[in-house]
């Protein structure tokens, strides 16, 4: 069974149709990369998957792990195992990273009927994940994302993913804003999480990320449609030629 199955997805924001018929299937263990020009709808797709209310689905269907994703509230989708790393992570003043992440993990555990974790058990877990992403321990007690540099915010997103261990991770431009070393660290963290049950969707503009995290499939999103799909070599081709040539060809979403 596929993990994510998007069929003929149309979505609007403030009455403007942004996604105009997307088909995409993601199986467990696969890594898909979505590329495309600015404003083409990549983040919109990510937000729709995360069930953001302001993005209205006007047609189509999305099945996530055999369940109707469109029936879920954002927190339910998260608890079902869908994680989105934000293109622009949000600051939550006054709430420490550690407190927030434990609350998040416990919400997920509770949803699944599992025992919640107390601070004593949770702290070593969080520290381990932070080490993986080479994040200093002082970030434990700093308010969520407040005053973090752009790169620190992105890294913090991946720490969260590592703690929450989702079935599907949608990473929206996690590479932008990272310096070369940080990019390698993040890629290492993401690769460490790749396994046969977990799938990932990487939204990116740059081949550079895909050098480190090699995707199984690459899709090109232009003007709300997937206009081309292929293997990792497609990303190289895009790097060389840009996007304009893809639009001429007929849309063919893979699988």
């Amino acid at each position: 069974m596929s993990l994510l199955e998007i069929k003929n997805l149309h979505a609007s924001v403030n009455g403007n149709e942004i996604l105009k018929g997307i088909d995409l299937t993601v199986n467990p263990g696969e890594v898909h990369s979505i590329m495309g020009p600015n404003g083409s709808g990549k983040s919109t797709l990510a937000q729709v998957l995360a069930r953001r209310e302001s993005y209205e689905v006007t047609a189509g269907s999305i099945m996530f792990d055999g369940k109707d994703l469109l029936e879920m509230k954002p927190e339910d989708a998260a608890c079902e195992g869908l994680f989105m790393a934000f293109q622009y992570p949000v600051e939550i003043p006054g709430i420490s990273n550690a407190y927030f992440l434990r609350a998040a993990l416990n919400a997920v555990l509770k949803y699944r009927g599992q025992d919640e974790m107390d601070a004593i058990d949770f702290l070593p877990l969080l520290k381990e994940k932070m080490r993986l992403l080479e994040m200093d321990e002082r970030f434990l007690n700093r308010p969520v994302n407040e005053g973090f540099s752009g790169g620190e915010k992105k890294r913090n997103e991946i720490v969260q993913m590592a703690v929450l261990e989702p079935k599907l991770a949608v990473l929206d431009e996690t590479d932008s804003g990272l310096d070369i070393d940080a990019l390698k660290i993040v890629a290492k963290g993401v690769n460490a999480m790749r396994n046969k049950n977990r799938a990932m969707v990487l939204v990116t503009h740059y081949q550079r990320l895909l050098d480190y995290i090699v995707p199984d499939f690459v899709h090109v999103l232009v003007n709300g449609r997937i206009v081309k799909s292929g293997g990792p070599e497609l990303a190289l081709e895009l790097e060389e030629k840009g996007y304009s040539w893809t639009e001429a060809e007929p849309a063919g979403a893979r699988r």
Partner: peptide, 22 residues
């Protein structure tokens, strides 16, 4: 902010109360 917390599994009510407590 509310959506960010929700995306991590926290309910809307709890998200609001967390933001306010912060």
């Amino acid at each position: 902010q509310i959506f960010y917390l929700q995306q991590r599994g926290i309910s809307k009510e709890e998200a609001v109360s967390m933001i306010i407590n912060g």
